[in-house]
Amino acid sequence: MTSGLIFAFAGAALFAMGVAGVLLIDHLLRRILAFNLMGSGAFLVLVGLAQRSDAADPVPQAMVLTGIVVAVAATALALGLVRRFHGLTGKMELPVADDD
């Protein structure tokens, strides 16, 4: 097993943990962290699988950099919303259901 593949599997595991977190954790802050974990897992897969020869492939690195920027933006938006939510309701968990 090459090191690239190990990275990829680790990334997949991280991604799965992140997904589980986003789905299962109620606490909003931890959920945001879980989302970041998920993103990092995907980046790791991207970089890991791209390691086919010794020369570094610039494309996945460019993609990961872009992806990180996107993730930062998403995290910032999420944090902003959570702060507002906390300010309005004093809670850190979404209500169970608020249907019609």
Binding site: F15, G18, M38, G39, A42, L49, V59, P60
Partner: peptide
């Protein structure tokens, strides 16, 4: 989009 991104990563790997 996270699921989509992982898919992209796998495609790039392949």
């Amino acid at each position: 989009s996270g699921a989509y991104l992982l898919g992209v990563a796998l495609i790039y790997g392949a």
